[in-house]
Every structure is written in structure tokens, then in C-alpha cells.
Design a protein around this nucleic acid. Sequence first.
RNA 1: GGAUCCGUAGCUCAGCUGGAUAGAGCAACAGAUUUCUAAUCUGUGGGUCGCAGGUUCGAAUCCUGCCGGGUUCACCA
Length: 591
Amino acid sequence: MNIESSLKSAIKQALSALFQVEEEVVLQPTKSDFEGNYTYVVFPLVKQLRKSPADIANAIADYLKTNTNYIKSYNVVQGFLNLVLADEVWFNTLNGILAEESFGVLPKNNQSVMVEYSSPNTNKPLHLGHLRNNFLGFSVSRILEANGYDVVKTCLVNDRGVHICKSMWAYQQFGNGETPESSGLKGDHLAGKYYVIFDKHYKVEIEALVKGGLSEEEAKKNAPAMKAVQEMLIKWEQGDEETIALWRKMNDWVFAGFNETYQKIGVSFDKTYYESNTYLLGKDIVEEGLAYGVFFKKDNGSVWIDLKEEGLDEKLVLRADGTSVYITQDLGTTDLKFKDYNISKAIWVVGNEQDYHFEVLFAIMKKLGRNYADGCYHLSYGMVELPQGKMKSREGTVVDADDLVAEMIETAEVTTRERGKIDDFTKEEADALFRMIALGALKYFLLKVDPKKKMLFNPADSISFEGNTGPFIQYTHARICSILRKAASQGLEASSKVKVVDINKYESDLIFVLNDYPNAVKKAGEEYEPSAIANYVYELAKSGNQFLQNVYVMHEEDLGKKLFRLALIKSVSETIRKATALLGIEVPNRM
RNA sequence: GGAUCCGUAGCUCAGCUGGAUAGAGCAACAGAUUUCUAAUCUGUGGGUCGCAGGUUCGAAUCCUGCCGGGUUCACCA
């Protein structure tokens, strides 16, 4: 049983015995300015009991002292009861943690959840925004696994449509048979190159038409390039052989490029859906909705749903010409997901510019009586902005994912070489370390912020390896491993069970933080917030470093104490490893 | 304009199921290394928690209004 819940039930018992009140007990960590580990606030009881805060607090403390052996000492400041826990409590707690192989992991709950993330377009390479999306999705998947779920990680690839035809058309016009091999370009970058070429070409045409007297709007519609692209889309939908072949060829290049990036950044999927396969889905749902009177038809034949009662508006679900819109597809795809897998929840990791879309989607599902509707959740995350403002592909201010990762690895190498601690590493070992540090820094940087908030990506901060960063946490792990190696070389193993010795503040603080890990996992799972894990593991690493800097483990002469401290730091290093794994971050044994 | 999210130190962010004197990191300054990894640690300075009301023993946290910013409101995706 963990400290907090033991203490809570003891206080609850005290309240019942002393004052005959049944009250849910809430504890908080004692502020560092006061002596104590946990604080119980008695103010809420004052009115009810008609006693002074100090009397109530003292009575509870007395009760705990005489009836339990949890308390070493206590103090009462105003209405705050600060409790210092007995050494034995700390040792029992640490022993509990040491004994539990999967500390922090909740038992299987026999529920499955699908997490969709990444969802790239196949007309340009991944950028910084995709990285936040990928890291969030992957991390949330891991966190949900730790919370007992079976997780299906999926990717919905947007591989069709006007935007894809743009790069196809430009390639057809100006490509001269260029391939990834001939150009040395990664496939996704090659496709992206032609997407940019299209845009330039298109702009020139618009400008010429505007000069010729057309309005901007007309010019955009009538530019030959746009007309050609639209024709191409029609051909694609008709299954024109040549168009399909070109589409296949270019998409294959892009997929190869994406896969390379995914592998490098360490994310993966259990299932990939392609919009080229799903874009026609949803029309039968429109029929269903009409039949049940959930949808209605307007005079021109378009189909709508009225969501005013839900505080939304009317929403088109099928065009007058009978073709699908974005939400039609999503209706179909959502049904498909729940048909393909026996899942109770589905999560979409998608940027907050689509908040309204998902609100509407879920509302429709509810109106259609889908029993899974309540299990649908849009994990909405904020945009990543640069110091000069938003990223705009047209203005060339997009931070490319591959470039960024490469730069981070480069920086990690330079920084690590400077320290000169890994001179005996083989090239393979060193390269693996640089990659680990680079990705640790990047992932931590993007995950430590609350997902729903927009965040600023300042290149100078993001490549920092000091302070509240991924490498700081990795460093703490490596530092502990170093001590454990030294101990092992002297025949000392961190034992799996420790005996009671005098304990100092650094030690009890560390156990306190360790003990809190399961709470962090639970909170991160309930709120879909990897940042809760990031903040937790930073606290742990910080406490760990404070301990290491102030308590010299291997200098301790008392063998019992030494073994206790070894066990303590081992537990810290393992918890760091488990927690960072939930963020998709690896930790090295040396760095 | 409607909806929605956000506003905390010079900068980037925690804290938000109401609790003590609002915390970290970076940046600035001052220290610590014959000692297990200094990617570290210790300390100093730095705040009308956007503003104004309200709720109460108590508000950064809850409610209302206002100010400022983002996103969105397509027979685009």
C-alpha cells in the first residue's frame, strides 16, 4: 500500500473516531519552507466542529501518534497539520517499489483504444508540426498501455485529392523523369519539390490573368494549371491508367521517405488507413441518417444535419451533386475503425484548428445513435510557432523534420565530444548515443508543454541540453548507472530489500517523488497529457541529482546505509527509464 | 460578429478537483570540482498571476463582465 493512501485512511479513521465525521481526506505535499512530508488542511472542519484549527490539528496528530506508527513528528501552523513520516514508512515504501517489477503500470483493463496520429499528406515532407503530433500520439499510446489498455496505433494517410494532383501535375510537366535515385532526394522531399514548383507556376499564371483584367478569384479558378489539376483529379477518380500509375509511383516514393523518417524518430503504427480507400465511405451513413430523419435534404438535393440544439449549426454532409465532403469520409472512417477493431475508445491526435470539425463529427455520431460516440476523443493540440511567427510553407519558414533531426544529432555529437567522456566508444555506440540524446532533447522539448497550448519553438532553447531538458534527465540516469557499475565492481549489488537505517531529507524526498510515479501515470492517462509525465520525470531527475551531489553513496562506511542508497538510486534510475519510455525517450547507461 | 482556446518573472513554461510567503528552467550575478559523470549542485536579484467585480474563513485556481491574442464558423481537406 502506498504512503499516501495509508495516511489518508489513517486520518479518515481519526476523524471518525475523534469527531464522528466522514470526510474525504485530501493531502498535499508540504511546502519546502516547513518541516514535513504531507500536509493536511483542517480549515474545512473548523465551522462544522466549532473548534479552533490548532485544536483539531493537534487532536488528529495525537491520534495518529498513538494509534499508528506512521508519524515521526508533526507541527501545526495555523490550520495546517504538517506530518513527518517515520523512517519505517519510507523503507516499506521503497521496498514495495523495489519488489514491483512493473511499478507504475496498472493491470490490464480488457479495453482497447485506438490512437490515430501523424496523418500526413503525401505531397510534402513532414515538418515540425508533424513531429509534435507524432510524439504526442506515440506517447499517449504508451501512456494508455501503462494504464491498462490495449492500444491500436493508426495512421490515416491523406493520399488523394487536389493537393496530391498538384505535385503530380507539376512533376508530369517539369519532372524530366527525375527519381529519388537520380536526384539523391528522399522521396517525400522530391514530391514536395514539385508541390512548390506547382505553386510558383500557378502564381505566375494568376498574376498574368489579373493583369489581363480578371479578378483574383476568377484568375485562381481559371488558371490553366488549376484546370489541368482538376482534370487530373477527375481522371484519377475514373481510374485512368496513366494517372493512377503516376500516382502510385510518386506515392511510393513518399511512403518510402516517410517510413525512413518514422523509423529515425522512433514512432510506428499497427495499422495504416489510406484515404484513397476510405474516401467513398460514409455515403451509406448519409442514407441511414436520411432514413431515420436525422439528416434532411434541401431543394437542390444537398443533405444536411441540424445541430442547433447541440449549440452548433447546420452542417452539410453531402453535396448537391452527390459527392462527399470531408466530414462524410470521417463518418465512414469512424464506423470502419469500430468495425475493424473491438475498441471502446478512439482518439484522434489532430491540431486544434479542427476543433469544430470534431465537435460536429461526434455530435453527428451521437445523433445517429452510435453507442461508441462517448468514447470518441479529439486530442487537440496547439500549433508550433517560431520566433518570427507561424510556419508558412509558401514563405519557406517551415522547419523540416528531417533537417531538424539531423541538426540535433550534429549538435548532440559536438556537445558530447566536448565532454570527452565516451572516447572509448565504438563508432556504432557513439552514433547510437548521439541519436538518443538528439531525439531525447527534441521529444522532451515538444512534450513537456501542455498539448492543448500553442508552443514556441525557439531553436536556441530547443537544442539546449541543460536544465529542464531531455538530456538532463538522460544524464541523471547515466550518472546513477556509473555509480551502480562502480558498486558492482566492488561486489556490491543494489539489494532488492533494504533494512531500516537513519534516513536524511534527501533520501526521504527522493522516495516521496518515487512514490508519486503511479499518480503521474494515472493523471497522464486520464487527461491524455504526456506533459504530466515529462514534468514528473524532471522532478525525479532533479531530486536525484540533488541527492547525488550531496550524498556520496560509495563513501558511506556503514554497509547497511550504502546498500540502502544503492537500492534507492537504482530505483530512481529504473523509474526514470520507465517514465521516459512513456514519452518515447530512451536513456543511455553512459553519456 | 458567433463559437472556442489562451493570457503567470526579461524569455520559455509548471501550478488550475480553491489553501501557507505563487514555483522551475533559461538569461544575469556570486559560489562549489585532490571526492561515485560539473550535461551537475548551492545561493542572490527578478511578479499588481491581463483588468474589474463577485462567491468565502481563504482565489493564479470557481462565476460574471471587460481588454488583448490564437483558432474556427466553405457544397476546401
